[in-house]
Design a protein around this nucleic acid. Structure first.
Lengths: 139, 139
DNA sequence: TTCTATAGGCACCAAAAGGAGAGTGTCGGA
DNA sequence: TCCGACACTCTCCTTTTGGTGCCTATAGAA
């Protein structure tokens, strides 16, 4: 993440941002936001919430699968910080915490949906391209 | 990346993939493909090619900004492998290599466009959410 | 003659990501 | 009475990521 910030800073200095029509500050933020949300766990968690509605901590972990507690905690914190989800703590024992998509989160899920569709549409072509590449480079 | 493959394998065993209607193998591939293409440099390079058309190695580096030669090489290789771009080597000295988006790459760029638009539309809200979060957690 | 541009490869090293496992506090069940 | 559930946090350790600098070949410029 720091790398991106540095890169953006360098680009601002040198005045060669790719969208000269928008302000450099906006570009920087957009890149930063994209770098955050493009995270693989973020997308998987967002999708889990989209499909199942409000979920609890361990439910998300089970649905997403293969995520460690540490990463799950870290990712949901980041998502809460970015306003993609809300975190509701019920002060009972044992603890009970609910996670829900915000409107912002739903919009992002919808936007990212195009990439899911792309992947589902073209994964076979990607596979074929990989096989062809391997064959080319192999010999 | 290996993590994802492991996670997918674990999920296949336990039969709790999020899209039961599609085959587990397809799901695995889709996740794998998304994990690859959601890479930040991939997206920036794709965007550079979308805006400027065919580019040479160092041109991409300059336009993207802040990327090391090593990462640039690695990323374009991966993209070529996945069939997102074509790499044309002109056997001259000094070397001359052209990179161009394939149809697959253009489709992905278009799909990812939604996320760019989302970021440009809502970055201010994300900023606000972050500030609010910081204020909440600060005290 | 020496320098530069081009598109990398290779080796070394620092930093970050991320996994495993233990600890926490309390309540309800066996 | 001891265990497990929940939603974490913390520490230790390994793996991965990514940066830097040095190397290549040769044509043309200075």
């Amino acid at each position: 993440m720091q790398v991106i910030r540095d890169a953006v800073a360098a680009m601002q200095e040198q005045g060669r941002l790719s969208h000269p029509e928008v302000s450099p500050a906006v570009e920087a933020l957009v890149r930063d936001v994209i770098a955050q949300v493009a995270d693989k766990w973020t997308m998987l968690i967002l999708e889990a919430l989209e499909e199942h509605g409000t979920l609890r901590f361990t439910q998300i972990g089970r649905i997403v699968g293969g995520i460690s507690q540490k990463m799950l905690t870290k990712t949901v914190r980041q998502m809460e910080c970015d306003g993609l989800i809300t975190r509701k703590v019920h002060p009972v024992i044992p603890p009970h915490v609910d996670y829900t998509q915000t409107e912002l989160g739903r919009e992002l899920t919808a936007a990212f949906c195009g990439v899911w569709v792309w992947a589902e549409t073209y994964y076979a072509q990607v596979e074929a391209a990989r096989a062809a590449f391997k064959a080319r480079e192999g010999r």
